[in-house]
Structures are given as structure tokens and as C-alpha cells.
């Protein structure tokens, strides 16, 4: 169908995007790899030279390292689990015949428009604050001690805040998938005596597989790099209880001012992201083919 010349033109049209993205990816990556093998401390600029793999071994031997990795994965997994389970439930609820579906959708989508620093500071101050927060007031109203959310349950609190931000995204995609499900199929199954649970298990859920795949893929990409919410709320603490890999890197770069170590951490983060991506693509690639 396409002629030789139209193929050439087509390549020419993709070229700017590919070249720009390649530069955008490769230059910082190459610099990061270079720095990761160098001694590079902003606080002692007179010391420089090759560090060998010491920046990497520092990271691997750091007591926070495995905690940081597991917190990173916990954050991604936790938010995915919450947003998908509640996303499915809320999408099914909104999909029922209700009055005011338009305004309803507007309310549900709203958290998506709240920028991360605002979302984090609203939750930290207006809701989770142990003295002035609304949740503390509610606890006192019930005659209970206010819960120190960010101090006692830092990871759970961060996961909760991030889930609130991403719930609209999951809900909307799942809702769109639900709306394309034919009600005849469900009615036929109901006639045949299938219970509500098995109708969900064998008809609704398989229909949403592709939508769930999209949610997992897109959210994982964004969640692996989550930083702002932790920076605003817990600062990785208390101690290092809510430190994730991106936050560890940030601490090395801007607090310890050790660029070499931060770069080594960056490369570890890139490798981790690629491992996660590899498994994602392998297990989900087949659902994505158009």
C-alpha cells in the first residue's frame, strides 16, 4: 500500500521525536553513569578521581537500602491494589442507573486536578495533623486518642494519600470499560441463575482485563518515581521508616551533596525500573495488542 517515498517521509516524521527523546534519555543517563564511578562531593571539591564501584557498594551496604527498595515496591503495589479494588467497586456503583451522573463524575475526578504538593499538604495539615487535623477532631469527638498517622504509620499514610490522588484515574478508565459491557450478556447470565458474584467473576472482570492492564502500566510508571508526597509529608521518616529509593537519592544529592553516590543510586533505580518494566511487559503485553 505505502510507496517507497511515503515510507521515507514517514520515517522523517518520526525522526524528530525519536532523536529528541533519545537525547533526553541518553545524555543524563550517560552523565549519571559517569558520575556514579567518580568521587564527586560538593562539600569537598578538592577530592576527586575514580571511585571504582565504591559508590555502589555504599548503597548496597547502607542499612536503608533494602528498606528503601521494599518501601518503593510497597508504595507501587499498595497504591495499585487500593486504586484497582476501589476503582472497580466505585466504577460499578457509578455505572448503575443514578440521578446526576455528570456531576457525580466531576466530583469523583476532582482529586486528579490537585497538584501533588497541594494534595500532600492538605492531607498532612488539614486532615492528619495530630492537633488541628479533622481526623484528630473526629477521634476526640468519639472519645479516642488522635492517631499519629504520619508518625506511627508513615508508609500507610503516604500510600493512602497517593491512592487518593490516583483513584480518579483508575475509576474513570474502569468505568469506561464497564460502559461498553453489554447488559444483555449479564441479563442472560442472570436468567440462567448465575449469582451476582459469579456474574462479576466470569463476565464483568474478564471484560475489564484490558482496562486494568492499562491502569497498572501507566500508574506504575508514575508511581516508581514518587517523591513529592514523601518530601512534603514525612521527609522519609520517622527515622527512615518511609524512605523510598527516589528519596534516598534525593538525600544523597541535595542534603549530603554527594553526587557520586546519588548517581549510583540513580543507576540502581533505573535498573529496578527496568526489572519491573520487564515483568510488566511480559505478563501484560498480550493484553495490550490492539
Amino acid at each position: 500500500m505505502a510507496t517507497q517515498s511515503s515510507r521515507a517521509t514517514a520515517r522523517l516524521m518520526v525522526a524528530p521525536s525519536v532523536v529528541l527523546l533519545f537525547i533526553w534519555m541518553i545524555v543524563p543517563l550517560a552523565m549519571t553513569i559517569w558520575f556514579s564511578f567518580r568521587i564527586y562531593r560538593l562539600l569537598s571539591p578538592e577530592r576527586s578521581g575514580w571511585a571504582g564501584v565504591r559508590n555502589y557498594t555504599w548503597f548496597f551496604n547502607s542499612p536503608d537500602f533494602w528498606l528503601g527498595i521494599s518501601n518503593t515496591l510497597l508504595l507501587v503495589g499498595g497504591v495499585l491494589a487500593i486504586t484497582i479494588v476501589f476503582g472497580v467497586l466505585i466504577a460499578m456503583l457509578i455505572d448503575q442507573p443514578v440521578w446526576g451522573q455528570g456531576p457525580l463524575r466531576i466530583l469523583v475526578i476532582s482529586p486528579f486536578f490537585v497538584m501533588p504538593p497541594v494534595a500532600a499538604s492538605i492531607w498532612e495539615n488539614l486532615f492528619m495533623h495530630p492537633q488541628n487535623g479533622l481526623l484528630a477532631a473526629a477521634a476526640r469527638g468519639l472519645g479516642e486518642q488522635p492517631i499519629l498517622f504520619l508518625e506511627s504509620y508513615p508508609m500507610a499514610s503516604v500510600i493512602f494519600i497517593v491512592s487518593w490522588e490516583w483513584l480518579p484515574f483508575a475509576t474513570l478508565i474502569l468505568l469506561t470499560a464497564l460502559q461498553s459491557l453489554s447488559s444483555e450478556q449479564l441479563e442472560a447470565a442472570e436468567m440462567d441463575g448465575a449469582s451476582a458474584l459469579s456474574r462479576f467473576r466470569y463476565i464483568t472482570l474478564p471484560h475489564m482485563t484490558r482496562a486494568i492492564t492499562v491502569v497498572i502500566l501507566i500508574q506504575t510508571i508514575f508511581l516508581l518515581g514518587i517523591f513529592g508526597e514523601i518530601f512534603t509529608t514525612t521527609q522519609g521518616g520517622p527515622g527512615s521508616a518511609s524512605t523510598t529509593l527516589p528519596y534516598m537519592i534525593y538525600k544523597q544529592a541535595l542534603i549530603a551533596k554527594d553526587i557520586g553516590r546519588a548517581a549510583a543510586g540513580g543507576i540502581i533505580a533505573v535498573v529496578l525500573a527496568n526489572i519491573v518494566a520487564f515483568f510488566l511487559m511480559r505478563s501484560m503485553g498480550k493484553h495490550l495488542d490492539a
Binding site: L21, M25, L29, M31, I221, A263, G266, A269, V270
Partner: peptide, 19 residues
Amino acid sequence: MLSTKMMPAAAVLIPMYLI
């Protein structure tokens, strides 16, 4: 193309800053 988004921003903060 999508995979270029997988690089955590914090990882390339210093190179970006320098550039």
C-alpha cells in the same frame, strides 16, 4: 518511547541541573 518515562526524576536530577 514509554520506557523513557521509567527513569525516576530524582535519578537524573544532578545531570539535568548541570545541563
